[in-house]
């Protein structure tokens, strides 16, 4: 049973299926009811499941997350929508000091099966605070699971897997990919939520990436193949925990690694992946692990975001630099 749909529709369908499957699942967020969310991810869900299960929230992100934690303690499985990446910070304390460690501080007696959906990333011509990539802050926090789908197929299944998880999940949705279509097999999940996926096989170098950059990296790899280079692309999918085995196997095979993300460089996921790679496979590496990222400045005006974000040419340039060793 395969359908072609956008990532936005796939998320909507995944949420609908989760709401149908478990009466304890409920959604909360700003404008998610009648409007269906500013990106329409929750369209018609309030109409079909009622105001008690698809809850329009006051404009207070800490309040949304904090009350959802209370609902989780009562046995609910809240799925929270943060309207934009740049608006998650008011909820940061609740996420980091409360949600992430409730299992730990209760000695395992309590759990917080909550999903925090965050549309993230740039390249949509938005104004300030609407194009952020906050994943490293959350991946740095023990107790949180951090994932990001890159395709409609993954979006459809990973949102359901996240809702079924007994750990809190930061669910990062690459908003620039919301309206791109893909095939979605509705019959069974193709992969566990914490598994990385080799999306393109290759032998010369590995590009490790996730979320909005997966498509860009695949395009770069295909372009490189025109120059006779065989590039492997790994979609990390789960940023915390990382699928160490898949990452390691790929780089031990190719001997070269390039990590690509939209987020700024310093202290980013790329730094963590690079550190792990040099610990695991120092003697398999033919070249230093390279990073292609945004630059270490706040997100700039959208007219220059194309120069700020990694793109096909910058990725190919990194491939060239890696291969030069």
């Amino acid at each position: 049973m395969t359908q072609t749909m956008t990532m936005a529709k796939a998320l909507n369908a995944g949420l609908r299926r989760a709401l149908e499957a478990d009466p304890k699942v409920l959604l909360a967020g700003e404008d998610i009811g009648k409007l269906g969310g500013v990106f329409r991810i929750t369209e018609h869900l309030q109409r079909d499941f009622g105001e008690d299960r698809v809850v329009d929230s006051p404009l207070a992100e800490s309040g949304i997350v904090g009350t959802s934690l209370g609902l989780a303690l009562r046995g609910y499985r809240p799925v929270v929508e943060i309207q934009f990446d740049g608006f998650v910070w008011p909820a940061f304390d609740q996420i980091v000091s409360q949600v992430s460690r409730m299992r730990f501080r209760s000695l395992g007696r309590l759990s917080v099966p909550m999903v925090i959906r965050i549309p993230y990333g740039g390249a949509i011509g938005a104004i300030e605070h609407h194009s952020e990539s906050p994943e490293a802050y959350f991946a740095h926090t023990p107790g949180l699971v951090v994932v990001s789908p890159s395709t409609p197929l993954d979006a459809y299944w990973m949102i359901q897997q996240a809702i079924a998880s007994d750990d809190p999940v930061i669910f990062l949705e690459p908003k620039r990919r919301y309206h791109e279509k893909g095939e979605v097999d509705l019959s069974e999940p193709p992969l566990a939520m914490d598994a990385a996926r080799v999306v393109l096989q290759g032998t010369d170098a590995t590009i490790l990436t996730y979320g909005p950059m997966v498509k860009t990296c695949v395009e770069a790899a295909l372009a490189a193949s025109g120059e006779g280079r065989s590039i492997e692309v790994v979609d990390l999918r789960s940023l915390s925990p990382l699928d160490d085995a898949t990452i390691r196997a790929s780089v031990e095979k190719t001997g070269r690694a390039i990590v690509v993300h939209e987020a700024v460089r310093t202290g980013g996921l790329g730094a963590e992946v690079a550190a792990r790679l040099q610990e695991w496979c120092f003697y398999s590496l033919e070249a230093p692990v390279l990073r292609v990222t945004a630059y270490d400045m706040p997100y700039p005006p959208s007219r220059v975001e194309k120069n700020y974000l990694p793109d096909l040419d910058r990725i190919l340039d990194a491939v060239d630099r890696s291969m030069a060793h």
Partner: peptide
Amino acid sequence: ALHATGYAMGL
């Protein structure tokens, strides 16, 4: 205070 309010919403 938020956890309590959410819990009450659960009730």
